[in-house]
Design a protein around this nucleic acid. Structure first.
Lengths: 201, 201, 201, 201
DNA sequence: CATGAATGAGTATTCATTCAT
DNA sequence: GATGAATGAATACTCATTCAT
């Protein structure tokens, strides 16, 4: 995307590589893999092959398969923060902002589905034992607050909208796309406009 | 492939084993296992140990791990048909029927979550290649029609409600139960009652 | 060696195998392997191939490579207890008993060398951390006491004799057999007979 | 194989690096590593980390892990030649020289043990195939002749003494130091003094 | 000279599956 | 029908080694 020089000279002239940059580049290619195969079924060899590197290289950048997965979750979770805000711009009326929101999700349906699938795998992975790492939970809150800021609605309503969108995406995944996003969007739209009329926001 | 008698008579006639019955009993114990571990991470040995049988026995009743999983999906998919109808009984007014529906899902949240998780794993498993087996898709339609029959609402609205419930359950899974089912139920309730008033059903 | 029936019938007629017996049979073939290759260089695949079984079978009987090694140490350590006593029989005079002892070690030089090598690898394996498992230490004491009982000499003298024999075997290992066991035996013999004359036993 | 200058002049003349010197410095730090981990279990990365250099540097000075090990054996084998002679000085009577010898080994027990362990690993490494390189065999002969020169005893007796000391060190390794070096030294001392009295040297 | 990123064959271990009993 | 011993391909991960910088 943006230009970044890879060249630098240190005293003994070893091969110069920006570790974190490479790591990020690798992570960015992993979302689809994990989402399509599932944590348990995706092998390090498959990943290596898909990323055109050796397994050794994978382990050079990540401690383990689990570590790679965790970093992926963190990566995609943070990635969104910028994007969500974009939906805010250039929409004046409430109706326009609702449209912007729906469009945001419709345009990114695939990415959003992958994200939810990863989150579910991640949640499963942790088991009930670990309560520690927030990860996806945080991301959900981010989405929620983005919706609240955009539409100026109550937290519980925003959460409901998010759940509905989540559910739609998943339903389309399961039923092979038979659910119509266009039609369902209209329903969500009507609901939100109705809420505004009632002043119950 | 080959013919297999379901009834077996020992010389002493006491022990009659019904192949399908045993199979069903085994399947019924697998939902949690697959849902908690994921298809890729669950091993036949874990299953065998959890069901208190040997792996040999597992392979006596199922051709492969994949076959077992498919049969499980079929099993849980058909299992619901009976249950859904129960929600219909003893609810006269529209409001009561809405309550019955919400209660149905809230009471069975765990089961419903497991079911959705399995469906997602199943969908993933099949890949884009196989278009053949409907499975979960059918089940979703069943739920949809159950809701239509119960509430007398339009198909797209029923689908929306289902998606919202789906989404809620998953959101609660991901955020560790932070989303309140009670509060969200009220929103769904308000939405449905509002729809009825408008006569837009 | 001795006859042992493998046949038995349990209620469901599964394949009947004496787990421990097979395990022992496998262990008995591992001494040379570990001794010749060294713990770190010997692979499970090499072991499996040498024992004519699959790696899976190896792991059916042993938890890990380390577990296999530990059990091997225990196995060879206990194996000796019977053999040491044999050297006692049919030797009346002190001189005869000394000869019996020397002959015992000379005849079993290879086995004894392997044993010492394994013990050293085992000691190294444990690191300084674990003080727990006696293993080889016990075996050394057994040898010591066997020598004491046989020759009626003091503990420290017995220990000295054992050390000398240990050292000889290792020296022959390192120098490719250039040290003569016959000549050295005479020295040990002279030393022991000298000790007896002095009555310093 | 190819010629390699040991001296290197940078353009600014300050940094003169002697290839062999650096190599020796590296080797001198490897004895403990190989002895504690064992050839098969010690990795080039562990070595590099322990020596505070990169693996690349290691391969700059040594062709391979095996080459490094061989050079280490050669290094420690030659290192001793000087030290052994030190034990000779300032000991006039036979008794004093015996004490000097015993003290020599007792003071250097750890180093001597490491050395024997390395020799055994080296012997194992070569397998029966290679008869070529003498290495440790030579070193044993050196020790032997040093003892002969020091005490003026017969070759086979010197060899016996060496074997006993070897055996003692190893026995202490295996039994965790339970064997007393002091007590055992007295036995060796008595034996040697007895030999002298008999004039059987 | 020195570095450490990259490689891919190799390591310990696991897994779905088979089959003799 | 039921068992669990046996298999060997596959898995996560490591290692000696190379090489661009």
């Amino acid at each position: 995307m943006h230009f970044k020089s890879n060249v630098c000279y240190n005293k003994n002239m070893p091969k110069v590589i920006n570790h974190d940059e490479v790591r990020g580049k690798l992570l960015s290619q992993c979302l689809n893999l994990f989402s399509h195969e599932g944590y348990g079924s995706l092998t390090m060899r498959k990943i290596a092959k898909a990323l055109n590197v050796s397994t050794g290289t994978l382990y050079h950048y990540f401690d383990s398969k689990e570590d790679l997965f965790r970093q992926l979750v963190e990566y995609i979770t943070h990635q969104d923060l910028f994007d969500v805000e974009k939906a805010l711009q250039g929409a004046d009326t409430f109706s326009e902002r609702v449209d912007a929101l729906l469009r945001f999700f419709i345009d990114r349906e695939d990415y959003f589905l992958n994200q939810v699938i990863i989150w579910m795998d991640y949640t499963r992975q942790q088991g009930e034992g670990t309560e520690a790492e927030p990860g996806p939970r945080e991301a959900l809150v981010q989405y929620e607050q983005g919706i609240i800021r955009l539409l100026g609605i109550e937290k519980e309503v925003a959460r409901f909208i998010l759940a509905a969108i989540n559910g739609l995406v998943i339903q389309r995944y399961i039923d092979g796309g038979r659910t119509s996003l266009a039609t369902q969007s209209i329903l969500i739209r009507q609901y939100l406009l109705g809420q505004e009329e009632q002043g119950s926001l």
